[in-house]
Every structure is written in C-alpha cells, then in structure tokens.
Computed example of a mutant assay.
Amino acid sequence: MITLEDWALIRRLAGEGVPKAHIAERLGISRTTVIKAVNSESPPHYERTAAPTSFTPFESRVRALLLETPTMPATVLAERVG
C-alpha cells in the first residue's frame, strides 16, 4: 500500500513524462503499482474492520477504574482487573 504522498508524487512525475519504470525504481515499488496509481482517480485508502482483541473483555472495567483514578499506574490496573 502506497501513501497519499507517494500517490501524489507518482501522478505528478507521470504527468511530467517521467517513465513509469524510473518512478518505480526511485520509490522502490513495482511498476504495476505505479501504473495502478496513475490510472486511479482517487488516492489509496485502507479500511480495516474492527475485531475483538484480548483486551476487549477488560475494557469496560479499565475505563471505569480510570474514571475514578485517572493517574492509576498500569500495573495497579492490571492487578485490579485480573
């Protein structure tokens, strides 16, 4: 996945007539990625679906403890939550 800045640079360089192979070599990406960036109308975006983590079961209790005592150290939080 390229960054927004890389996408903009690729499109600018391609617009100036720089060969796609040179752009790919300069940025350390594949020529195919350069071609896709040049042909795309919008910058790349990455969306990740939310998934439960190992912290999820403890989150509500940790938030409650932090509301009571915002400066509570992480070690004490861990002891109290289990």
Rank of each mutant, 00 (worst) to 15 (best):
E16A: 09
T69C: 04
R12C: 03
T75I: 09
N39Y: 08
P73Q: 01
S40G: 11
E68G: 07
L9G: 05
A64C: 11
P19S: 06
P73V: 00
A8K: 15
K20F: 14
L9E: 14
I10A: 06
R63K: 14
S30L: 07
T56P: 00
G15D: 11
K20M: 12
S60R: 12
F55H: 10
L27C: 08
F58L: 06
P70T: 05
L67F: 02
L13C: 03
G15L: 08
H22N: 05
E59W: 02
K20N: 13
P57E: 07
E41W: 01
V18C: 06
L67T: 08
L66A: 10
R11W: 04
T32E: 03
R63M: 13
E59V: 06
A21M: 07
T56Q: 04
E79M: 05
A64S: 15
A50S: 13
R48N: 02
E5W: 00
I2M: 15
G82M: 01
W7V: 01
E41K: 13
S30F: 10
V38A: 08
P43H: 13
I35G: 09
R80V: 02
N39F: 00
A64W: 14
R61I: 06
V76P: 00
D6L: 01
R26A: 14
L77V: 14
I23M: 05
S40N: 15
P43K: 14
W7H: 13
R48F: 01
A21F: 01
V62H: 01
P19L: 01
I10E: 07
M1D: 09
G15W: 07
I10G: 02
A8S: 12
P73C: 01
L13F: 00
G82H: 03
F58C: 02
E16V: 00
K36G: 00
S54N: 06
I29Q: 01
G82L: 02
T71G: 03
I35C: 08
E41P: 00
K36H: 06
S42E: 14
A24G: 14
T56S: 13
A78I: 09
P57C: 07
P44H: 03
A74P: 00
R48K: 11
E79D: 09
D6M: 09
L27R: 10
T69M: 08
S54Q: 10
T33C: 05
L65Q: 03
R31P: 05
V62I: 15
Y46F: 15
L4I: 15
I2R: 14
R61T: 12
H22G: 00
V38H: 05
L4R: 15
A21I: 13
